[in-house]
Structure formats: C-alpha cells, structure tokens
Amino acid sequence: MTRSSRRVVVTQRFFDAAAIAYLESAGCEVVLADLPPGEADGGLDHDTLAALLKGAQGWIVGHARVTRFLLTALPHLAVVARRGVGYERVDLQAAADLGRVVTIAAGGNDASVADQAIGMMIALGRRFREAQAQMNAGAWSILMGSDLYRKTVGVVGLGRIGRSVVQRLSGFEAEVLVATSRPDPEYAARTGVRIVDLETLLAQSAYVTLHAPLTPATRHMIDAAAMARMAPGAFLINTARGGLVCDRDLLAALEAGRLGGAGLDVFESESDPALQPVTDALIARPDVIAAPHAGASTREGLARTNMIAARCVVAVLEGQDPPAGCVVADGRPGRGARP
C-alpha cells in the first residue's frame, strides 16, 4: 500500500490536531465525519457507515457497530481502531476471519475514568447533588454525609482502570476488596488488597465500583439478587458498561431504599432504546449522580486515546505491530491474534 492511498476516516468527535498531524505525517488523508450536532457514531446505520468508509484503509471509531456485514462491504479497510477500551460492539471473529485488525486505545483513558469513579464516590457520600438542590430552593440546612476515608470499597475487575482506582483509594486509607476472574496474588500482596468472591465483596463493601468488560458472562452481574446481597445503604458506581447492571433492578432497589445511591456513566439504554424511560427515571433521582458516558472525555484523556488510536492505524498500515496491549483481533497472515 502506497502512502498516497492511505485514507483514514474518523467517526469520533474531539479528534485533536496533534493526532491529525501524526496521521498526515505518515502520509494519511484524514477524513473527519460530519456528524449531526449532539449525535455520536453509535447512532449511524449500516448504509451511512458504508458510505462514509468507502475506500478507507483505516477507521478510528467510537461506539458504532462493526458487523460482519459492514466489514464485508469494506474490502479495503485494514484496521479498525477503537478510541477507547471497550469492544463489545465489534464483531472480532468476523474481523479476524476477514483479515482485518481491531485495536483499542489501551492505557489512554485509565486515569480519566478512575478519577471519575472516585469523584462519583465522594459526590454520592457527601450528597453534593441533594445539597445543591436544597440551596437552589433556598434551604441551607446541612445534610449528613458519609466519608470515603477508611471505608471498605469493592472493586469489580482488575484491569488497567481497576488498578488505577485501587491506586487512588490508597490515599483514602480504604480497605479494598477485589473480585476478578484473573487473580494476581503478587499484586494483592504488594498493594494490600484482598481478593474475594463477588458475593463477599457485595456484602462487605460500602462502595462498589465496576470495572469489568461486558461479556455474556458479566451481563447483568449486578441484578436484583446481587443488590439484595449488598450492604444496606451501599453505593454502586458503574463507569464501565451499561449491561453490567440491570438498570430496572437498580431503579427498584433505589426506590425501595435498599441502596444509598448510584453513580452512573453508562446505561443499558445506550444499546437498547426501549430502556430509555428507565434511564430517565434513574437520572431524575436525587440519589443518583449521572454522566452521559463521559468518563474518558477529558482534554487530556482524549488527547492520549486519539494518539494511541492514530499510532495503531499507522502501525497496521505499515505492516508493523501496534503498541503493546492494543490488539484485540488480528487476521493478518501469521499473526494469530484471534478473539
């Protein structure tokens, strides 16, 4: 592939000048999708995506669905680079079968999402939303809150973001319980965390924060039964993926007063619009701190993930290996990276 034939389409907002300059320095023609105001690429249908990506060799994508049907319609597309770390909307098997490479921006948004998770814990415990609402209404009475200091915090998932959260919790002298499918005894000994099963974590934690990938095994891992095992008044934070929590069950648990509150950056309605009324009811509650899947969206975090995605695209187009930890599917002959 000659440098002059490298067309890279970006269907994400906030793609910065430094990442564009990097791609252009590698001979790429960068095309930024003109998305309607307030819309993301997750809402683009097959025909729109196929038209945008016609003739492209690289695609830097947000939350669009990358299907076998779409990949088959784009024979020139060599690499799909997620500007993020989740990839449940990408058909990895199809990508590998069709000889494509799929990458994530590993390490780019760890700090940003971890900061948000800690911020949500503090905001919930100290009842920031409720206090400001009262002040706006003219009532300056003090609401009694809860410390994060020396509390027991349950961290579900021990990937890059989960470890970043653990690191931050050390400053609060928290007792940290971790539930993970990949225990790391050396890490536990070094950091002082306790590796436990999910049931123990739920029963003993004042705060539960989710940092697991969404897979068939983890879907609805926090449902009505799991919430019934949580300590009364505990806080649930989900900055990972909406499908990890059954949002209907969460709404019911909050309405029943079982939980102290929830911090939510992700919702099931992102992939199932029929659940939008549940999302609306959750974000209207005074005991919920909500954000529109914005955990990674800081200037610094997006600059990091933009550049990692750009480096992944250039590496693949030049026949090289992307940065360590970024490849999630590689269908190139002899590479052997299968989902």
Rank of each mutant, 00 (worst) to 15 (best):
Q57W: 10
T48V: 14
L49A: 00
A40D: 14
K54N: 10
E88K: 02
L74G: 02
I60N: 01
V79Q: 01
H63C: 02
V61A: 11
H46P: 08
L49G: 00
A78E: 14
G42N: 05
R65Y: 04
Y87L: 11
D97W: 08
V85A: 15
G42T: 07
L53K: 02
T67P: 09
E88W: 00
L49Q: 03
A94T: 07
T67W: 13
A81Y: 00
G58W: 04
A95K: 05
L77I: 08
A78M: 13
A94L: 13
L74F: 09
G62T: 12
V85I: 15
V61M: 09
F69M: 14
F69I: 12
A78R: 14
R68M: 08
R83K: 07
P75H: 05
K54T: 09
V90D: 03
P75L: 05
G43L: 12
A51V: 13
A56G: 12
P75Y: 03
V90L: 02
D97M: 12
L77S: 03
F69V: 13
D97I: 11
D41A: 05
L44V: 06
R83Y: 02
T48G: 05
D91W: 08
L49E: 00
L44P: 01
L92T: 09
L92S: 08
L70D: 01
T48P: 01
K54F: 07
A73S: 15
A73N: 07
G43M: 10
A96I: 03
H76D: 15
G55Y: 05
P75F: 03
L53G: 00
G62Q: 09
